[in-house]
Structure formats: C-alpha cells, structure tokens
Design a protein around this nucleic acid. Structure first.
Lengths: 240, 240
DNA sequence: CAGTGGTCTAGACCACTGA
DNA sequence: CAGTGGTCTAGACCACTGA
C-alpha cells in the first residue's frame, strides 16, 4: 500500500461514520487507544482526526473525548458557470453583444457603486449573451477601474467581460445572490421575452482581498437556464 | 498570544496571498527556511502549509517547492437554507402545513421515483412553508421508505419533513438544481400568487452512500426569497 | 542526484474540563 | 485532579522530480 497511515485511519472512520455504523454523538476511541489499534505515533492519529474535524465529521473536546458530529450544516458547492463554455458544450454557438459602455464616478444614490469603487472611477458594461443567436442572458457589469485599469483597452465584442476578468484578474472572495424575478421592460426587450416572464437573477460581487473588483447582475431566460450545486465525494451514476 | 504558532504561520501567508503581495505562481520559502524564520520544528511549518493546501491557496510540488495557487475554479459555497431557521432569524413565525401524504410504489412513468427507491416503497409529502402565516414556499418531497423507515411514524404538522430528515438521517451526497419558473396553477394557488409569477425552483436529491434518501421540489415566492452563495475566507464588511 | 516535500516516530509540556 | 486533546520538538527515512 502506498496510502499513508494517517489517511487510512481517516478513511476508516469516515466510512464508519458515513455508513451510519457510528451515529452522531457516538464516542470515538481516544488518541491513546488509536495509537495502540494502529500501532503508530500520536501525531499520526492526530493528523487523521484533524482532517475529520476539518471535514466536519467529528467534534473533539478536551477531557471528554472525540465524538461523531451532528449532521453538518447544509452547504453545497455551486459551480459558477462560464457561460461561453456551457453554451459550447451544449453544441451551440456563443457570442456576446455589448450594447452600452460608460466610464463614470460612482453614483452616490447607489451605495453598491461606492462600495465597489470608493472614490475611483467605474466602467459600466452592458450586454447580452447569445446561444445560437438566441438571447440567453442580459448582464450589467460594473468594474472598478482602479482595480482593473487594463479593462479600458478591451473591446468586449464577441467575448464577454466575465471571461476576460476571469483570465486577467484573480479574485479571492465572491458573493452571489440568486433569485427569481419577473422580466422588466428592459430585460424583456433584450431577451425577447414577454413582460413578467420568470428570469433567474444572479448578482455577484467579487473582491481581491479588500478591494472590490466587479459587481454583475445577470438575468437569464428562465426556461433556458439552470444552476447546479453539488455536495459529496462520489459521483452519482446519473452524472455519466 | 494564545494563538498557536502553526496558525500564525498559516494566517501570515494567507494574508500575504489574499492581499496580492504574493501573486499566483509566486514561490514561498521552503520548509527549512520557514523553520529558521519562525524558529520552530518542521512539523509546525508542515501543519501550517497543509492547511493552506487544504484551503486551495497554495500548491506544493516535491523538489520544486511551494507556490501560490492559480485562482481557483469558479465555484462557491451555497448555503442550503433551513427554512425554519431563516424565517425565525428574520423575526417571523414559521410553520409548515402538510396537505398531502401518500405511501406507494414508484411510478414507472417517473424515472426519478425508481431512481430514488428502486423497487421499495415511497412516501410522498406535500406541504407549504409559512412565514408569519404568509406562504413562502410549497414543496413536494419523495422519501424512500427503505432508507428512512422511521418516517412513517412522524406527523409533520408544524415542523417540516426537511428539518426532520436533517436531524434523523445524515446524508453524504446531494445535488441541487436551481431555476426560475412561472407559477403553474397548483403552485399559484398554494402560494397565493398570480398564475405565471416568477418562482425560484429548487430541486434537490440526497443520498447516503449509494442509497437514495429523498427528492424534493420546492417553489419559492420569487419576491420573498433569495439564495446566497459565498466564496472566500475573510468576511465582507457588509456581513456585519 | 540533490533539494524538496510527505510521512512518521517517540517523546514532551500544557490547557482544558468533566467525572 | 486526572484524562483528554492541542501543540510542539528534533530528529528520521523516503519519494518524487526538476535543475
């Protein structure tokens, strides 16, 4: 076996917990007992158990011992789509059409804008994502020019600002809000929808450290777009 | 300081990476150098760097060294709401009303049902989540009786099946699909909405190991509900 | 083939906290 | 106050891999 011992210990207990053999609240052996069971040093046991703590599977309390954690918080991994890639994978053509571009200072009436750029300048880019020449989403994106000065040199006809940013500007933090909204007049016109049609609304802010980079609001055609989030290690059969 | 040394080393480098001082691809000192810098044993350095690897901030390659990781894949953590908790945190009262409950075998016409329960029995629970007596979401939930036999004994008047499951049945894998859909006649009636109103649609399947546990489809009142996904370690100022 | 990380040992002292 | 986990040391051998 090339598998490290700490990994074997970790996966042993992971399996016993996930199978239900060890129920929430059940006590695990102490480090001393595990040293005997696996005939190893305490650091090795400690490394295995630390990984289980990090994974949220166990809790450890001094003097009391190590216990199977209560079922974890309900969180999953959401894949943030690269729209171009997704469209291409569906076998469709992709393009992006920019229909507005302005450079200005933050509007004091919009706290979002000042939060993004402080007193620096912003660039506003508005455009539509197309799949096979059918509108898929319309987006309005604000970018802080002080964080991303190179943006001024880019044209964004064909390629989307999001893809450009992803390549050029590493971000470290992001927050995404997801909602369902009716299409307003502007969105309906851009997406060729009836007024009030259900749209998936995605609003994302990204930062690098403490500096705001971009704020984007996207409206997707409800009938044409889903987001997928997953949790878990093994792949489902249906994943193909 | 009560802060462990390995944590200090970890947070030092985390800060330098997130601030942009250490850009992607930049080389970190070797373990030997860090032992000297922090005047500590190699295990202590190793523990700190292992945590950064786990967080995706650095990559380590033998012989080559330790490097700041390229901006990670575009994925975020989506908090799956415990509806009751969220409603209570908003200062509203919560309750759940069950309006349908059936036990049956999977309908061959619905591949979802066979995928969930195989040839075993299913229980179907349909109900509405209320916040201050206003409908917030309607859900239809299928549960595999072979995976969760105890479910037959529960009433689910007041508390939701989701909360019950979360407490009683640990799951290990889940998949969530998120979309915006217009309210159909049933949804509109249950949520007191106009036909065609934008609803956030959440469909989630959960498994324990290879065994399907539940499949739930929820329609949220679009104007009353958002999902939030986050990525990053530091909290934003707006997080309070 | 030498430098780097991966793993592991066999101890040690300490902090916490529940029996 | 004794058992438990948290941290740390000062080594060791090894595997990998890029200069």
């Amino acid at each position: 076996m090339k598998q490290p011992l700490h990994e074997r210990i970790r996966s042993d207990f992971e399996a016993r917990i996930l199978s239900g053999e060890l129920l929430p609240g059940a006590r695990l052996p102490t480090e001393l007992e595990l040293m005997r069971d696996y005939d190893c040093a305490r650091m090795t046991v400690s490394k295995a158990l630390s990984a289980l703590v990090a994974a949220g599977l166990i809790d450890r309390r001094k003097r009391a011992g190590t216990f199977v954690a209560r079922p974890r918080v309900h969180s999953m991994v959401l894949d943030i789509p690269d729209l171009e890639q997704e469209v291409l994978q569906r076998g469709q053509r992709y393009h992006f059409e920019l229909f507005n571009r302005e450079v200005r200072t933050p509007d004091p009436a919009h706290p979002d804008e000042a939060a993004l750029a402080g007193e620096g300048e912003l660039i506003l880019l508005e455009g539509v994502h197309f799949a096979d020449d059918v509108p898929l989403a319309v987006e309005a994106r604000l970018i802080s020019l002080s964080a991303v000065p190179d943006i001024a040199a880019s044209a964004f006809q064909g390629a989307s600002p999001g893809a450009w940013l992803l390549k050029h500007v590493p971000w470290t933090e992001a927050e995404t809000r997801i909602a369902a909204v009716p299409a307003d007049r502007n969105v309906a016109a851009r997406l060729h929808l009836a007024l009030g049609s259900a749209c998936l609304f995605v609003e994302r802010r990204t930062w690098r450290g403490d500096e705001g980079i971009t704020l984007v609001r996207q409206h997707f055609v409800g009938s044409a777009y889903d987001l997928i989030a997953r949790f878990g290690s093994a792949r489902r059969p249906s994943d193909g």
